[in-house]
Design a protein around this nucleic acid. Structure first.
Lengths: 189, 189
DNA sequence: TGAAAATATTGCTCCAGGTCAATGTTTTTG
DNA sequence: CAAAAACATTGACCTGGAGCAATATTTTCA
């Protein structure tokens, strides 16, 4: 049950077995059904999530009622609505399971406890922050610089299985184009 | 000369006078002329910069030769090409002064020295990381959800003096539209 | 498992915003 | 400080991608 997270931590640190099991103890098992909202808009985010199985997305809804997806995460990934988690203000976005998923959940208090208790865990957290920053940055450049077709090609190159795993509608809301445009482009590739 | 940085640090921490002056000692004064490239594409970024006076931008050039601006920073801001600074790989972007500017420069080694030596400085660095992440995130949503006109209005609301300070051409490269479109929209507002 | 709901595909139409080019204005620099 | 270079504005034109709607397909769940 914890073996995937254990492997994840082992690969990224030198944590001894004893520390690993202390760390794993702080996580709780949680099953969510497809489309379940894990963190709601306006709610303060009090947990960090590790995706053991399944997939989630982070999205918001603009003033015209259109869903905008910012981020998709799959197995073996840490994920949460980070701004709200950091500053404990109401989230301006949703965290949603897009498949039936199994999550390992840790409270904010325990999470920061691990960060200050284990140097190696602090390093892993910093890597998560940096990774998030850098992937956001790449996305900004891709929105600025590319046509719809190029954005699809770029996505296929960076995450070849994304379009197989994510529905046309959600993928379009991630790429910033309409579902019909994405559908047409897919038939061209 | 160091008074602006000193005030910046004081506002954000409880650092005593003695620590403050130790910290300030690690920074070097640097003047740059307008348009000067501070960090070049392909160069490994070895410094963090505090903008004492002036303004800089971070940009890249896409495959069609078009400049894409990701970020503008003005007085009283820390700034660098963060991905390259973090992992010491060649930068995929440029850091450029867009006005004649005065910078306070600290080497990566000294910077991380301060991070580990002073808890308060570590906190300030984390705030910089988080701020960068969150501002990138807002920008992603704004690219996805808004028309050209709405993007300009949003920018005016968030940073009212941006368009007064940044040339039409550069502002357009930040907003992801052509200079002619931005020019037309400005006359409508 | 089969009816209902959600999603995907595709044709048609239209317009926001791009490109190009001409002109006016500002900035740079010898 | 004047000539040159860079930039801003504006008009004319064109096209990528949006919106809508009809149909086909897939998913959901009683």
């Amino acid at each position: 049950m914890y073996s995937i997270l254990k492997a994840y931590l082992s690969e990224r640190s030198e944590l001894p077995e004893s520390d690993l099991s202390c760390i794993l103890d702080r996580f709780q098992w949680k099953k969510v059904r497809k489309n379940e909202i894990i963190i709601d808009f306006g709610e303060v985010c009090r947990y960090f999530y590790f995706i053991n199985k399944g997939a989630v997305r982070i999205f918001t809804i603009n003033s015209e009622g259109v869903e905008l997806s910012r981020f998709f995460a799959f197995e073996r990934t840490f994920c949460t609505t980070l701004p709200s988690f950091i500053d404990q203000q109401p989230a301006h976005e949703y965290l949603q399971a897009i498949e039936r998923s199994e999550l390992l959940v840790i409270s904010r208090k325990d999470f920061y406890g691990l960060v200050s208790e284990y140097n190696e865990f602090d390093r892993i957290y910093r890597e998560i922050l940096e990774f998030s920053f850098i992937s956001n940055q790449k996305r900004i450049y891709s929105f600025q610089g590319y046509s719809a077709l190029e954005k699809v090609q770029l996505l296929l190159k960076m995450q070849p299985d994304f379009l197989l795993r994510v529905s046309n509608k959600l993928a379009a809301s991630y790429l910033g184009m309409s579902p019909s445009t994405l559908s047409r482009l897919k038939s061209k590739i």
